[in-house]
Design a protein around this nucleic acid. Sequence first.
DNA 1: ATAAAAATATCAAACGATTGCGAAAAAATT
DNA 2: AATTTTTTCGCAATCGTTTGATATTTTTAT
Lengths: 330, 330
Amino acid sequence: MTNTTLKLLAQQLQLSISTVSRALKDHPDISASTKAKVNALAQSLDYEPNAYAIQLRTQSSKILGVIVPAISNLFYDSFIAAVEEESRNNGYAVMILQSSHNPENELSNLKIFRQNRVSGVFACLSSSTENLEVYQKMNEREIPVVFFDIVPKDNRFTKVRMADERCAIMAAENIIKRNAKKVLAIFGDEGLSITQKRKSAFQKFMQDFSPKTHCSFAHAASTKEAEEIMKKFADKKQKVDTVFCMTDEILIGVMRKIQELQIKVPNEIGVISISNGFIPNLYYPHISYVETSGHELGKLAFIQMMANMKGGKTLTELTVDAKFVEGGSM
Amino acid sequence: MTNTTLKLLAQQLQLSISTVSRALKDHPDISASTKAKVNALAQSLDYEPNAYAIQLRTQSSKILGVIVPAISNLFYDSFIAAVEEESRNNGYAVMILQSSHNPENELSNLKIFRQNRVSGVFACLSSSTENLEVYQKMNEREIPVVFFDIVPKDNRFTKVRMADERCAIMAAENIIKRNAKKVLAIFGDEGLSITQKRKSAFQKFMQDFSPKTHCSFAHAASTKEAEEIMKKFADKKQKVDTVFCMTDEILIGVMRKIQELQIKVPNEIGVISISNGFIPNLYYPHISYVETSGHELGKLAFIQMMANMKGGKTLTELTVDAKFVEGGSM
DNA sequence: ATAAAAATATCAAACGATTGCGAAAAAATT
DNA sequence: AATTTTTTCGCAATCGTTTGATATTTTTAT
């Protein structure tokens, strides 16, 4: 069965294609009676405009692209969900591609986006992306790019991200409030700017406001690594009394060890993390965390995208503020 | 900056558009030298074919649609990830829309898919979807629809799903093996066929092979509900010694209560669930589970899609088999 | 040297929709 | 009744690509 087209409608109604087209879009040139007829037939024949023809003619697609390292991720999936929702409400469809943290995939994804003439892309850099030229070119082609979460340092681009420094500082605040003596702070992948930001902010704040607190720093790129780090520190004689986890992956590893060794939270050890809240609430007591909401970030990103598409380039870096959620683990 | 087109290339090279087009696709009609020239210029001008023009001309898009109740879900996100991966490797892009379990959204999503002339759709029914007519129409338009996870009973459609009965039976087997006396089995949304299947298979198996085991059945549509159910049953005098959780949401609720009440797993209570493994492995001891892999299902769905698109309709119902993963909670 | 075959490149018509411009018909004005 | 205005609609070009048919040139065979 072939799709209904304007031509088909026109033939059946003995009208010209242009009249049918105009009738369908409620153009003032067309009489009410014709409109009625056209609409009726379109309805009964299940007419749906061919988006491809429209885009070809109007040179503007109603598709937005999203590149994430992985869809299957507690943070990114909520970001995607938010973007999808906003997009649909605004007449856009979303095309989602994952880079798997591989710059090559990132490139081929971008290619697909270009072929499909997406009218904008949301991009989260993969950890090893060095070359931003492609993105620069997109901007030159007037395809707005909004970076999120893992963003380039380069300030030629529009970016939205969590208030990373604030997150880290809020965590530090609560660690100090708890009166911690020996802190283990586990951060994520050392190469990412997001890690750097969080770490240096954390470090500085602790230094400035509680210089006597002893802090050990570690990096874990996976749950497994976090688990091992936790193990090492739990084995030591002078145990740490508070552990900070920069990501969900880290928290999971840490909690596995804590449960296994039956360390009491919060009495023997305090735990605090940065998260969207899903993982922290799995445990009892709930883990206290600084909230970073993929959902909020998605909404903000969409707003930025619309702004970029409408008017002049707004090359700003917006941040979603964080808030502390008391769980019971501190 | 405007996009490079065939026309532009042709002008610069003093060739006809058709020659350029053929050169780019390595058509035997074109000489090697011409091809070289064309390719060189195309490269330097960053030529990317306009997917819209191609689709318009060839009447076939390289886009697949996916409808899920929610992207932000441990099962669906891995399904999506798998489909996306397979798709990209086969030259397809994926458009993802979420229904939020709302039939209206489902409908408008389908509309978007039609407008974009997707060449196939993967659909997971929202819990309250009654009217399958739209899907039937898609099939009539020769747009293959592959249902996954929550599938229609109707056998006019192609479906892939987990081996739901097997899952439930495997869980039951292990409950019997544990020598459970009092079992609490919590199932999901009563309206879903997936729930029905799992429940009746579970029920029958327990009845047939261990009629003396006392089973209490309950339904929970959310984590919160599961938590309350668990609370009720933990308070009782004659405590249950084994609890079965049909979904991750339920497991999470149950585990919250168990941790809160400090019930010892597996000594005081055995826990078993159906899951993709992520959640069960968060706890210590790891929860034993029957594995249902969204990733596997996604791959299977893609294969079915390709089969449907290539050849004759293969209206079959395929299932991904389950396997039991020993955690330590039984 | 001439006809036949092979190689190379071009023409032109689609695909489905939009839209400026002009034309015919109907209504309003003089 | 003649003219102007308004309403209603059609013509045709265009977006970028593909592709069957055709034209031109080169090579090979006779």
